[in-house]
């Protein structure tokens, strides 16, 4: 099975975010990056399917030059090759525009299965996989917790709300968005890291793909949320904070 995995590079989870001077995005200077966590699970799922059924795993990533670090990591974990849609100003594209870039690059590969994380940790639209599927004319299923190959295609377990699930049978080719926790992530081995250096990374630009930024949605302003609740912050050393909290729990909230 030929599996394409769309991955994204996002700021590291523990980053202290600062707004940039335009007020429309964050200041990315000195910001550490990592693979978007749900995409890491999508990649792992693709690798496991390949190990079971054979085939090829191709990582697809749209992002600036620094995203090549995330692509290298995917190759080190076991992706066979990668496509980097290199663009330093993806912010000019709205989510439909970015999905068009990804879908166009994906179409050139004619994969059997396209996987991606259910949402990104930065923009959090939770739509890229579904929009790609529609652009490619493929069926899609979201928030997937299990993938099994069947004679007719695949059977997936989809997560519903409040602890419910359902199975779905889907013909291939198809697009799935993968939920975090579907599998156990692997680490790259030393051998894998070494091998990654020799693997093919195809670079494509928006010009190669013939897709301009014509957004119909724009991000106008980014700002810190206003506090809805008046939080009483407890000052002091850890010991003082703990003592004060115990006092609050006992005498104010009265649960001790």
């Amino acid at each position: 099975m030929k599996i394409l995995v769309a991955i994204k590079q996002v700021p590291s989870r523990d980053s202290q975010l600062r707004l940039d001077t335009s007020g429309r995005w964050i200041d990315e200077a000195d910001l550490a990056s990592e693979i978007n966590e749900p995409d890491a699970y999508a990649l792992e799922e693709a690798l496991q399917i390949k190990e079971k059924h054979g085939g090829e795993v191709v990582a697809l990533c749209a992002g600036p030059a620094r995203a090549s670090q995330t692509i290298r990591e995917a190759l080190a974990k076991g992706a066979d090759r990668a496509i980097h849609i290199e663009n330093d100003d993806l912010g000019r594209y709205d989510l439909l525009g970015v999905a068009r870039l990804l879908a166009k690059a994906a179409a050139g590969e004619t994969p059997d299965l396209i996987l991606t994380g259910l949402q990104s940790d930065d923009l959090g639209y939770g739509q890229t996989g579904v929009v790609m599927a529609e652009l490619l004319g493929l069926p899609a299923a979201t928030i997937i917790m299990q993938v099994e190959k069947t004679d007719a295609g695949i059977r997936v377990k989809r997560e519903l709300e409040d602890g419910w699930f359902q199975h779905m049978d889907i013909p291939l080719p198809a697009v799935l968005t993968i939920q975090s926790g579907i599998n156990k992530l692997r680490y790259a081995t030393l051998m894998g890291i070494k091998k990654a250096k020799t693997k093919e990374v195809k670079r494509l630009t928006s010009v190669d793909l013939g897709i301009d930024a014509v957004p119909n949605v724009s991000l106008d302003r980014v700002y810190l949320p206003q506090r809805a609740k008046q939080t009483t912050f407890i000052p002091g050393s850890a010991r003082e904070q703990a003592a004060k909290l115990a006092e609050i729990l006992k005498f104010e909230v009265r649960v001790l």
Binding site: D94, L95, L96, A99, L118, G124, Y125, G126, Q127, V130, V131, A133, E134, L135, A140, A141, T142, I143, E159, L160, E161, P215, N216, V217
Partner: peptide, 21 residues
């Protein structure tokens, strides 16, 4: 969860963007 499954598809079919969440 259900809206996340189909609304992006609907918006895309009409050439539009769903602003989600």
């Amino acid at each position: 969860y259900q809206v996340r499954d189909f609304a992006p598809k609907l918006a895309t079919r009409l050439g539009k963007v769903l602003i989600s969440d």
